[in-house]
Write a protein that binds this DNA or RNA. Structure first.
Lengths: 227, 227
DNA sequence: GGGCTTCTGTAGCAAAAGCTACATTGAGGA
DNA sequence: TCCTCAATGTAGCTTTTGCTACAGAAGCCC
């Protein structure tokens, strides 16, 4: 059910194009490929990390859970990206500081810690990959922080719907999931969506949201705190 | 006025202990030392970055400004640390995505972009320094994000006062500055402090806050959203 | 069909945080 | 000393967000 030609996927990834050791060699070095067809938590906060993670297909979601049980997405790891946090844990023998979950139809390569450390020391391309991945993550986190400080929930919701749903005009996600991404609760999302539905900028279905007026959403997403 | 023995400071820094090219050589490579005795904005959002920044003494504050004009501190750069964001901009020819401000009595070394890139390519120690600085930053940002999601303002304020004032029992900072750090407004800070003063856990003076009951603050800082 | 679960819609209240406005106080300079 | 400005104290109101509770609807399995 979807496991298909993973090695094919692998070889076309940017990560590996950049490497002198290509995907095949990574596999020879001991990288294991794991396929997940549904949401599954693969790292819990406090876990020791056994290796580096490379997303081959699908997406990983890194999130935190507050003491009261609410989830909040910190960032996503897209195909071709390395879970740099895991790398950091490897290099510094730290425990992983958050939770990681697979999206449905996700394939992740796992490279044993020792292998990655060896590669890092010997391969300039791996060094560059690492620095680049870290840089991207820093930018992503800073953007997220800035967003939280300067946009209200309505604007963040509008932006999220646009970013994740604009391609096919539909965001396939339940309201609970949406709430978990934005670090709030379902009722609040429902309330905000109600307003959007009233102004006909979106339509809500069971398990998905259909974008009706892209421009209105875009305007809301750009508004931020300015009322 | 305080410029004193900057090179002395420099040689004792962890950053440079780690380098085969020591502070002296960095200076020979073209690093310029700049001293600031007061708050000064040294990078504006959107600026092109002319070099790498190393904090020798004092502290840099990286912050964002919302459309409505409110500041929010993203993170601090302490002595011995590199402004990795600037590095990233150097490597990728990006514009700086935030504002940077010196604290009073701060000395910053600036290494021209080209010099740093050369050092990075040839010196393994500089590569390690870079990766390490990035890792630290990622952890710091993730911690900040998690804090915002899981702690209310009161808890964050208590934590901030503890973290920055516990050493000498006093936090020398105006309430406006505090508000800018936590991404809120002065009135809100005043309101929260009033409660703390009422329960005698702190005392407020002009330009500073004196810690009275460390344990009470610590309890509040640990409480998070659980009411 | 019947029972169960999950998802959604809605209401109402409580708490948190933001905004406006103004009084008071302290420090420093003319 | 007086003036000015920055910092603080306070009040009251609005908006936003969170929390509780429940009802209806859609999908799924037996």
């Amino acid at each position: 059910m979807g496991s298909t030609d993973v090695l094919g996927d692998l070889k076309t990834l940017d990560v590996f194009r950049d490497l002198s050791v290509c995907g095949q060699q990574m596999l020879e070095c001991g990288m294991q490929l794991n396929y997940f067809d549904e949401l599954k938590t693969i790292i819990n906060k406090g876990n020791s990390v056994s290796g580096a993670y490379v997303v081959v297909r699908g997406r990983l979601r890194v999130y935190s859970i507050s003491p009261s049980g609410n989830e909040a997405t910190l960032y996503f790891i897209n195909p071709g990206e390395v879970c740099i946090l895991a790398l950091n844990c490897i290099f510094n023998n730290l425990q992983y500081p958050a939770w990681v979950q697979t999206e449905p139809d996700t394939c992740v390569g796992m490279i044993p810690s020792l292998t990655y450390r060896t590669l890092f020391q010997n391969e300039p391309s791996i060094q560059n990959l690492t620095v680049h991945a870290l840089s991207v993550l820093v930018f992503r986190l800073m953007e997220e922080l800035e967003e939280i400080h300067s946009m209200n929930l309505n604007a963040r919701l509008a932006k999220f719907i646009l970013m994740r749903g604009a391609i096919d005009g539909q965001l396939r996600m339940t309201q609970s999931e949406l709430a978990a991404h934005l670090g709030t609760t379902r009722e609040v999302i429902a309330k905000l969506l109600r307003k959007m539905v009233a102004e006909k900028s979106v339509k809500t279905l069971r398990g998905s949201i259909v974008i009706e007026k892209l421009d209105v959403l875009a305007k809301q997403a750009g508004q931020g705190l300015l009322t």
